[in-house]
Design a protein around this nucleic acid. Structure first.
Lengths: 216, 216
DNA sequence: GACGAATTGGACAATTGTGTCCAAAATTAT
DNA sequence: ATAATTTTGGACACAATTGTCCAATTCGTC
């Protein structure tokens, strides 16, 4: 009924059980993020996925394993989306402020439209202590790969004479921090950040970043 | 035994039961933060506080109420500490970079040594959806009072000719974002950030902030 | 030392959740 | 159509948790 993932169950004459599996994983991600590991009951997940409890145990084993699968799955989904956006990073911009702002908008929008990232961060924050190995995996895929990638792009811009950077890695972290800043507060609630605000956030971050590191 | 709050129970010929109450609140804060609301069992809290379960029910009622008391208590403790540090904000610095960095170190250190802030943030993130009224309270005391206070100090510095600001409120958020940036990752784990790194973080943030907004 | 208050520990019912088993039903492929 | 596989829903044992009750004990005070 109120199953938001139901539309995915089209006629898929494909991997036998993969649409139900997907429905389960989506539902599980939601419930885990909302209720925490302990608070998430298998029944709640089953209900939201529109599946019987038994099917979950059949396909994914016990709660621990379900949780691990959810996190790895979402990690992959999230990083894939991130790198797709990163490919649109401006290389030889005519108007650097304009193009960097537009890139920032794309980045923020991806981070919003695809809630995976948010769920994931929340899950890791909440359950990281109890699943240390999971925390490591996330750190490897999250900060471990995303920040260097951004740093490389920034270094490229610096090398092309657009920026003055002595520490690209630091600049990358600061750029992301400035971008995500206002998003966090909104996002922790269910608040759907309106488009104008996203553009405002991107503009603010880019402007300050360029004030600090732009060639003058 | 391994009760880290036990030392507080000195000879206090004072409010009859207030040291035990404190022990309970401290333990509850820890357990709630580690395990989430659902995962935190009263028994676990009682054990960590070194009291019997019954005592918790006697003094603080049921789990819901205990949680509320913990959050309000910690909110007050945290904001108090913050404003005590904010009073050391440089007003007429000789070397602005130096003095602003030192202030940043104090701010970060307070945010670390007093784990209340971290616990609180985590609790709000985890349980904010389930306790909406609580979320509002936190937002009122957290972002609602801290950011404007910082903005006012920055505006003061700008007025005194040290900074070039068009939007103090925005600058305040960005300053805090730059400061807290690297802290979050460390902190979510139990990692005790070493002193040199704190100073490094403060220096990085201040340097970038002044590159963007310092009068040249 | 004796009194009153708080604390303790243990037992208790009620609820909730996990993970398993299984026979009936639905779905899919042959 | 028929056979194979998956899904379903309900029942079940088992464990954990909440919140309450109460007698025995400890604690601080007078």
């Amino acid at each position: 009924m109120k199953n938001s993932s139901a539309e995915i169950e089209q006629a898929s004459t494909w991997p036998p059980a993969h649409n139900k599996r997907q429905a389960i994983l989506n539902a599980a991600a939601d419930v885990f993020a909302e209720q925490g590991y302990a608070g998430a009951s298998i029944d709640a997940i089953a209900a939201r996925a529109g599946v019987s409890r038994q099917t979950i145990y059949n396909q994914l084993g016990d709660k621990d394993n379900l949780f691990k699968v959810v996190v790895t799955e979402i990690t992959e989904r999230s990083t894939a989306g991130f790198f797709r956006v990163l490919d649109t990073f401006p290389v030889a911009p005519k108007d650097i402020e304009k193009e960097l702002t537009e890139f920032s908008v794309r980045l923020l929008r991806k981070a919003i439209c695809d809630p995976s990232g948010r769920w994931l961060r929340k899950l890791v924050e909440t359950e990281g202590v109890r699943f240390p190995q999971l925390f490591e995996t996330w750190k490897e895929y999250g900060p471990g790969k995303k920040y260097p990638a951004v740093a490389a792009r920034l270094a490229q811009l610096a090398h092309a004479g657009y920026l003055e950077l002595d520490d690209p890695a630091l600049a990358a972290r600061q750029f992301i921090a400035l971008l995500a800043m206002d998003l966090r507060i909104d996002q922790q609630l269910g608040r759907q950040t309106p488009d104008e605000e996203i553009e405002q956030m991107a503009a603010n971050a880019t402007r300050t970043f360029l004030r600090a590191f732009g060639k003058r």
